[in-house]
Structure formats: structure tokens, C-alpha cells
Computed example of a mutant assay.
Amino acid sequence: MQAIIAFPTDIQSTRKGFDFAAASVTGVDIDPELVQQAENSFALRASRVRPATSDSERIVDYFPISVVLEHGYRFEPRTNIASQQDSELATFPEWPRVSFFSGDWVTSANRATEGPYDVILALSVIKWIHLEHGDDGLVTFFRKCASSLAPGGYLVIELQPWKSYERAVRPGVAPHFMESFRKLKYRPETSFSALLQEHGLHLCNESDALPRRISVYHKA
């Protein structure tokens, strides 16, 4: 399951390098091993940043990877995964301010991941939430997205078509979801926009430039 990434309400509007000038980022994933991978990747990237000086701004991807590997990380990734759900795994003091959490965001009561956010990205994740929690869980997820967004915020989702659901429950992939799959009434192609609109999120843009459609919903 991919991470839910959310930007808080003090995000800047201009893009600098590859960080989009985000003030901070929160990453959530149900799989602690994937959270650890994300933390390791970010520790490497954060270690390559040249800090700002009195004469210049910080520079992203300034130090080569070989330099970090030879001389060590500026920010060491943690190696011990916390066992409890929704525990904070990493908070780095410099750019970008990133926190990773392990937990099921749909059912989590962790206040550190409640927002408000300017942007929520849900990429390659909604299908698994739907299969895990059923139609009621999907509605809960959409409701939580709406409540976690600041007014004027955006929800960006990757539309995983119904055919991908059918592939997901095949033997060798995730057949344990078959019973749940058979009970689903909502379909991504026909139901999602209406469900999101019920929670105040309105489709404002779409793109088919990638293999799967990317849809952007706006909270008025």
C-alpha cells in the first residue's frame, strides 16, 4: 500500500527544485517496512542537501550520493521500527520537514495525522482501502480526507479501475480479499466522484497522461 502524503496549511505556492517548497510533509502507510524504506530514502536525500548560508539558499541534491555513502549521513535513518500502530518514525529538523507514521489512516485516531492539510495525495492506495474495509470503509476514508483538508485544499487520487480490483483478488496476489470484493457495490469509475461530492470535494481537474487517471478534487 502506498503512502498517504499530506502537506500542511503553511505550504508555499512556489516550486523550488523537487520539493515544491513544501513547509512539511506527512507520510502514512499501513506497512511498517515500507515506512522504513521511505525513511531511509528520505534520510539519504536530506543528507545531500547543502544547508542555507548567509549568502545563498539551501541547495537540493547538492552532495553526490557517493559522498554521503563514503562520509556518512547527516541524518541517520532509524533502524528499529516501532511496534505500536501510528507511532511517529522520523521527524527531520531541516528541509523538508517530514514525518513518517505507520498505521491504518482510515481507522487511526492519531492526531498527528489529522491535518488540516492543503494537499492530500492518495496514489495506488484506494483500491486496497476499499478491499480491506469495504464500501463503508471507503466512505469513511473519503469523509476523513474531506475533514482533514483545509478550506481550499485539494485531494489528488489515482483512479484504480475495477479491472485492477479483479486482478488483485486472483490467486497469487491477494485472494484473501475475494469475499470482501464480492460485497462491493461502489465502483471507481462510476461512484467515487459522487461520494466525494457528498463530502464537499468537487472534481476540478483530471489527467490521463499517466497509465492511470489522476483526478484532483477541491474543497470549497
Rank of each mutant, 00 (worst) to 15 (best):
I4S: 02
I5M: 11
A6F: 11
F7S: 10
D10P: 01
S13W: 08
T14W: 03
R15H: 01
R15D: 00
F18I: 10
F18M: 06
A21L: 06
A22W: 03
A23C: 04
A23I: 03
A23V: 06
V25Q: 04
G27P: 02
G27M: 11
P32N: 04
Q37A: 13
N40M: 08
R45L: 12
S47W: 08
P51I: 02
A52K: 13
T53S: 15
S54K: 12
S56Q: 09
E57D: 14
I59H: 07
I65C: 07
S66K: 12
V67I: 09
V67A: 11
V68G: 03
R74F: 11
E76V: 13
E76W: 04
E76A: 14
N80A: 13
A82V: 12
Q85N: 12
D86N: 14
A90S: 14
T91V: 11
W95F: 09
S99F: 08
G103W: 07
V106A: 08
V106W: 03
S108I: 10
S108G: 10
N110V: 05
N110K: 07
T113R: 02
T113S: 09
E114L: 13
Y117M: 11
A122H: 01
S124Y: 13
S124L: 06
S124V: 05
I129D: 01
H130K: 02
E132P: 00
D135Q: 04
D136M: 05
D136V: 09
L138T: 05
L138H: 02
C145T: 03
A146M: 07
G152K: 06
Y154P: 00
Y154E: 13
L155N: 03
E158G: 10
E158A: 09
L159G: 00
E166G: 04
R167A: 05
R170K: 14
R170W: 00
P171L: 07
P171S: 06
P171I: 04
E179D: 14
E179H: 09
R182K: 15
K183Q: 15
L184T: 07
K185H: 14
E189S: 10
S191H: 08
S193E: 15
A194F: 04
A194R: 12
H199F: 15
L203S: 05
S207G: 06
S207E: 04
R212P: 01
V216H: 01
Y217D: 03
K219N: 05
